[in-house]
């Protein structure tokens, strides 16, 4: 007797993205115009990747909501098979902070720099208390020998809320096209 799968139903639902049902050009959200909302979302994403690429990782958890948040890195391969397995699965700011302490103090990995490029920022749904936003990312990796390669390509599926006058991620789901991970994945994407 098989019990229902906790996570596969939700994964199955997001297997194929709804082609962005058009969000009207002139929406208002939390008192912001559509243009200002777009600008604030893009600023959030820019600050988020700058935090990672500038190695201010101790600040990284603060981009997420305090009470409960979700951060997942999952391969597109698993998503398309309707399988729940994630590379990283965090359900609280504490788990995010623990990842950073582990990276700083415990984990052994090659010296390298990351450079995130984020584009195609698309607000896909506007609800009273949150936005659903998709964007594309590429992470370039520069190894110790000075050579740069594409480490990861994929997209962000974000649920963004306003908390203490700042936009924050209530959910960030990183869907990775590059499902063959080059050696290891230690820094957040």
């Amino acid at each position: 007797m098989s019990s229902p799968s906790l996570l596969s139903s939700q994964s199955t639902a997001s297997r194929k993205d709804k082609s962005s049902a058009m969000v009207p050009d002139d929406f208002m959200w939390q008192g912001y115009s559509a243009l200002e909302t777009q600008w604030r979302v893009e600023r959030l994403l820019s600050r988020y990747v700058a935090c990672i690429d500038d190695d201010n990782l101790e600040e990284w958890p603060s981009f997420f909501t305090q009470d409960a948040c979700s951060y997942e890195i999952i391969t597109r391969e698993n998503v398309e098979r309707g399988l729940p397995l994630t590379l990283v699965f965090c359900t609280s700011q504490g788990m995010l902070a623990d990842r950073i302490v582990s990276l700083r103090e415990a984990n052994i990995y090659p010296q390298r720099w990351y450079r995130h490029i984020v584009s195609n920022v698309l607000i896909q749904a506007v609800a009273e208390d949150h936005l659903e936003v998709q964007s594309h990312y590429v992470v370039l990796q520069t190894r110790r020998n000075g050579q740069t390669s594409i480490f990861s390509a994929g997209k962000y599926k974000d649920r963004i809320v306003l908390q203490a006058d700042e936009l924050r991620f209530a959910e960030k789901r990183v869907v990775v096209d590059t499902h063959s991970i080059d050696t290891l994945l230690v820094s957040p994407i």
Binding site: T75, N78, L83, L85, L87, S180, I181, T183
Partner: peptide, 14 residues
């Protein structure tokens, strides 16, 4: 007993 597959990881090592 019967298993439930959670998913795959692929790790490319040089």
């Amino acid at each position: 007993r019967p298993i439930r597959i959670m998913g795959d990881y692929r790790q490319y090592i040089h």
